[in-house]
């Protein structure tokens, strides 16, 4: 029995150790190395020189990130884009989650299925599909021109707007599902009590439903904010040269500059930044459990 229980815990522990901890330590190690034109393209962390062990710990990669404003700007821009995108996703997702949670049972299951349905096709394919919709001679412009709403095609592709559209579309289910799970638990009689005590529907929503769904809002928002912070594919495909995100910078450092140590330092700093929202999430969950 006890052996079985240990085995159950051992599997995910081993998994995390092998596929998270070890790669993380490798990245950390590379971030402390010097770039070299060699294979692999960085200096080893320790060397045997004349029979003595010599450590080469190089913190220049980190200080370099301070010196070149590109990195700081990329971080700030990523945070800004992630924050705005999270807010937009929330504005789009909250009414959907609310509607699904309030729907009667057979319809509710169908709606939930529809929310997760996009996952059945490749993420990359769906982002490419957005290019087809948003580009200058794409579907959206064609429809708007045909309907006479606009006179000349809108330039959406390769702007931040396209990036936001892509992010909101892609990450919506991650926000809807935890929010739905929260809202579906909301006791209807609380709203009736609020109405009975003289509150309008609007007031009841802002004073009862919204505060009680806060744990769901925070959980859903973090599930969007955290991955969007490091998002690469959407800004690379839909964004333009002006769209500055840390994921793109990281890619360039690795593959264009082949500067693995700086790229690793960028990745480590990003991980540290992400710890903040994760801690917020944990605290919110602890508070949610209390209620």
């Amino acid at each position: 029995m006890r052996l079985g229980r240990r085995f159950v815990i051992a599997v995910p522990t081993l998994w995390l150790l092998l596929f998270f901890m070890v790669p993380f330590l490798v990245v950390l190690k590379i971030s402390l190395a010097e770039p070299r034109i060699a294979i692999p393209p960085y200096s080893p962390l320790w060397e045997w020189v004349n029979g003595s062990l010599k450590f080469n710990i190089n913190l220049e990669n980190y200080s370099y990130m301070w010196e070149d404003s590109l990195y700081l700007n990329a971080y700030l821009s990523s945070i800004k884009i992630a924050a705005i995108a999270t807010l937009l996703t929330l504005l789009a997702g909250y009414p959907m989650a609310y509607y699904i949670a309030r729907s009667p049972e057979p319809r509710r299951s169908i709606l939930l299925l529809l929310v997760v349905l996009p996952f059945w096709t490749s993420f990359l394919l769906r982002v490419y599909a957005w290019i087809g919709i948003l580009k200058t001679n794409g579907i959206l412009n064609a429809v708007l021109l045909w309907a006479g709403i606009i006179d000349e095609p809108l330039v959406i592709m390769q702007t931040d707007v396209a990036v936001y559209i892509g992010i909101v579309y892609t990450y919506l289910p991650f926000l809807i599902l935890p929010l739905y799970a929260n809202l579906v638990k909301l006791d209807d009689t609380l709203l009736e009590a609020s109405r009975d005590l003289g509150a309008s529907r609007m007031s009841s929503f802002f004073r009862i439903t919204l505060p009680l769904s806060m744990p769901g809002i925070i959980a859903g928002s973090m599930l969007v904010f955290i991955p969007v912070l490091g998002e690469y594919v959407i800004p690379a495909l839909l964004g333009g040269p002006d769209t500055l995100m840390i994921g793109k910078v990281l890619w360039n450092e690795y593959f264009s500059n082949r500067d693995w140590p700086v790229a690793s330092a960028v990745a480590i700093v990003m991980l540290v930044i992400m710890m903040i929202p994760i801690m917020i999430l944990r605290r919110a969950q602890a508070r949610g459990a209390e209620i």
Partner: peptide, 13 residues
């Protein structure tokens, strides 16, 4: 009118 609910329906927050 005001109502007292069977479940009390107190606002938990």
């Amino acid at each position: 009118t005001n109502m007292m609910f069977q479940s009390y329906a107190l606002f938990p927050h």
